[in-house]
Simulated scan of single mutants.
Amino acid sequence: MTSGSTMARRALGRELKRLREAKRIRQSEGGRIIGVSPQTIGRMEDGLPTKVSDLYINTLCDAYDATAEERRILLELAFEVRATHKAGGGWWRAYADQIREGFDHYMGLEDSARSLSAWRLTLIPGLLQTPEYRRAIAWTETPSAPTEEIEKRLEVLVRRQTRLNDPTFAVDVLLSEMTLRDQIGGVGVMAGQLLKLLEVSELPNVQVRVVPFGTGYLGSRTGSFVLLEFPKLPASGLLEPPVVYVEEYAGDLYLEREAEVKRYREAFAEISRVALDHDTSRQFILSVAKEYGA
């Protein structure tokens, strides 16, 4: 696993913003300092793809009165961003046409994370889906898509799931009973999907638990979400703050403010409290799989 450029860009942008605001310099003024628009400074500070040359970094460091250590860290982060970009970025870049707009950012976050905590009201998370289950979803979302395009999406799914084989990547998934009962693709597809859940839940770094109907839990109000936490960046030693990802039909939401993350962390803990334990969840999943003829 590599931290990739996503984490480095986020850290670089956060540090540049901190230094600029400490000097009470507006984004428009920052842009004039290096000859770019305020929007470009905003993209840089938001960790979005944009040019991060050493000339830009050094010039901004001069204007922001950065210390020698702050300058060193920023230059190392900028180098990491450029090196990863030169190498072609994450593996998913080769499937850009098959990844919906904006999801490549999430892929970078997931690929860099040390832990993932997910709550799902509907649909099994992508990391745990079978190709047949994913294919059924894809045909529902885009019924007119060519078969070869759908199969390319399945290649992304299979590549993405190799992260589960990394013992340092901790995955904790809470599933509403609805995700087991909603017959995506029919009973045969669901039987295979539930057997897949049982298979991956045997991995030492993966935990899958079920929240049965009638529990009266907070998760029905929060909606589905993913909490991602990250290791320190290797070059700078900076610790990336966690991110909450909320996937919505009309667009994705990324929450990074400490208070927002805290609310979702507490919500996950509350939902976890009413979930079945690991072994009982496996028995529950198996019983539903048998209903589907597994």
Rank of each mutant, 00 (worst) to 15 (best):
M44H: 05
L195D: 11
E291Y: 06
G185P: 00
S37C: 11
A113N: 00
L75C: 06
A96D: 13
E260Q: 15
L198W: 01
Y264G: 02
R135S: 12
L203I: 02
I57V: 14
D166W: 11
P131H: 10
A170L: 15
E240C: 05
V189Y: 04
L286V: 04
Q98W: 11
Y56S: 04
D46S: 15
R265Y: 09
I184W: 03
L227D: 00
F284L: 13
D277I: 08
K51C: 07
I25G: 10
R72M: 11
E229H: 00
L180P: 01
R72T: 13
A136I: 05
A63D: 10
E248R: 10
E256S: 08
T2Y: 06
G186V: 06
T142C: 08
A259W: 02
S176C: 08
L255C: 08
E248D: 06
A118G: 10
L197A: 06
N205G: 10
Y133P: 01
Y264N: 00
T130I: 13
S201T: 12
L157G: 04
A78C: 05
R9S: 09
I57L: 06
I150P: 00
V208S: 02
R153N: 08
D46F: 13
S28W: 03
Y56N: 15
A66R: 01
A191I: 04
V187F: 10
V206Y: 05
S144F: 10
A66Y: 01
R114Y: 09
G251M: 04
R72A: 14
A96W: 15
S287F: 02
E240V: 03
N165Y: 12
R120W: 11
L227M: 07
G216K: 09
L180I: 12
A136E: 01
R282N: 12
Q161K: 14
Y64T: 09
A118L: 13
G89S: 13
Q39N: 13
M178E: 14
H105F: 14
G88K: 02
R20K: 05
T40P: 01
Y56F: 14
L123E: 12
G251A: 05
G216M: 06
E80L: 05
E149V: 07
K196M: 15
